[in-house]
C-alpha cells in the first residue's frame, strides 16, 4: 500500500511533465491539424537551455536557488519560444497547401536537425547535474516502507499547475485565446473574418514551445541528467498522452499526461523497467486503434 502510494506520487510528478509537453502537441494539432514531430526536440532544447542558464548563473555568482530558477525559467522559455517560432516559420509555413506528406516529412526533418544540432554543438555525452532542491518530507511509513514526498516533487507539481493556470487564462479569457480558438474551429473562416492566422499560428507555436521549455527545466531538475536524445522518447510519450486525452483537447492533454506518467511508473515498479517504453508505445498503438478520439476528444466527421 505504502509502496503504491509512493508510485502514485512519482507518477503524478512525471505525468505533469508529460502533460506540459502534450499541451504543445495538442494545440498545434488543433489549429493546423499536423503532428509537430519537432516538439519533443524543443523540449530537449529547453532542457539544454535551462542547463546552460543554471551553469551560467552559477558562474556569475547568482546561486540563490529561487532567483536562479526564476531567471532560468524565463531564459529557457523565451529562447525555446524563439526556436518554436523559427521552426514553424522555416519548415511549416511555406508548406501550407503543399501535398499531404510534405509538412510531416518536413517536421521529421526538423526533429532530426534539432537533435543532431544539439549533439554536434553540445556533445553526445549525458550531462549530469547535482540536485538543486534537496530535502522533502516523509509522509507516512507502513510495512517498513517510507513514503517520501520530495521538495522537488512539490515544486514540479506547483510550477506545472501555475503555468497551466496562466495558460488556461490566456486561452479562455484573452482576445489572443479567442483568436486561437477561432482558428482551431475553422482556419479559413477565421482568416476571412480578419484574424491574422499566420500570427495566431506563430503564437501557438511560441506558447507550446515555452511550455515545453518549462517541462525541460523540470525534467532536468527531477532527473538531474539530460542528453540530446531525451526529446525523442519524451516526445512520443507526450504525443501518446495527447492522443489518449483526446487530441485537440487541452484538459485532455494534461489528463493524458498524468495517465501516461502513472502507467509508466507503475509498470516500472510492478513489472519491468526495461519494458517501460514498450508499455507507453503499446498504449499509443492501442489507444489509436480503439480510442482514436481519446477520452475528452470529439469525434471527427469525415468531410466528403
Amino acid at each position: 500500500m505504502a509502496y503504491a502510494l509512493q508510485q502514485l506520487i512519482n507518477g503524478i510528478t512525471l505525468g505533469m511533465i508529460y502533460g506540459l509537453i502534450a499541451v504543445g502537441y495538442t494545440m498545434v494539432y488543433g489549429i493546423i491539424g499536423m503532428i509537430n514531430f519537432a516538439h519533443g526536440d524543443i523540449f530537449m532544447i529547453g532542457a539544454f537551455l535551462s542547463l546552460i542558464a543554471l551553469l551560467g548563473l552559477a558562474s556569475l555568482g547568482i546561486t540563490a536557488v529561487p532567483i536562479a530558477l526564476a531567471l532560468t525559467l524565463i531564459f529557457a522559455a523565451a529562447l525555446a519560444a524563439l526556436y518554436g517560432w523559427t521552426v514553424e516559420r522555416v519548415a511549416y509555413r511555406p508548406l501550407r497547401g503543399s501535398f499531404r506528406l510534405a509538412p510531416l516529412i518536413s517536421a521529421i526533418g526538423m526533429s532530426i536537425t534539432l537533435q543532431n544540432f544539439v549533439q554536434v554543438s553540445q556533445g553526445a555525452r549525458v550531462k549530469p547535474m547535482e540536485a538543486l532542491i534537496p530535502g522533502g518530507f516523509q509522509i507516512m511509513e507502513a510495512d517498513g516502507f517510507a513514503v517520501r514526498l520530495s521538495a522537488m516533487q512539490i515544486m514540479i507539481v506547483v510550477t506545472t499547475l501555475c503555468v497551466l493556470a496562466i495558460f488556461t487564462w490566456l486561452v479562455t479569457r484573452t482576445p489572443l485565446g479567442r483568436r486561437m480558438r477561432a482558428c482551431e474551429q475553422d482556419l479559413r473562416m477565421a482568416s476571412l473574418l480578419g484574424i491574422d492566422t499566420d500570427l495566431t499560428i506563430s503564437v501557438t507555436f511560441i506558447i507550446g514551445a515555452a511550455l515545453a521549455a518549462v517541462a525541460g527545466l523540470l525534467f532536468l531538475l527531477y532527473y538531474g541528467a539530460i542528453d540530446f536524445f531525451i526529446g525523442f522518447i519524451a516526445g512520443v510519450k507526450a504525443f501518446t498522452a495527447a492522443v489518449l486525452g483526446g487530441i485537440g483537447s487541452l484538459p485532455g492533454a494534461v489528463l493524458g499526461g498524468l495517465l501516461i506518467g502513472l502507467i509508466e511508473v507503475f509498470w516500472s515498479a510492478y513489472f519491468s523497467v526495461e519494458y517501460k517504453d514498450v508499455a507507453a508505445f503499446s498504449i499509443l498503438i492501442v489507444a489509436l486503434i480503439f480510442l482514436p478520439t481519446g477520452i475528452l476528444g470529439r469525434a471527427e466527421v469525415e468531410k466528403v
Partner: peptide, 20 residues
C-alpha cells in the same frame, strides 16, 4: 560523420520547402 544526420535532417526540410 557527426554532421551526417544534421545534413540529412536539413535536407529533408529544404527539399520539402523548395522541391517537394
Amino acid at each position: 560523420p557527426l554532421y551526417r544526420m544534421l545534413i540529412f535532417g536539413l535536407a529533408l526540410v529544404v527539399v520539402m520547402v523548395l522541391r517537394p
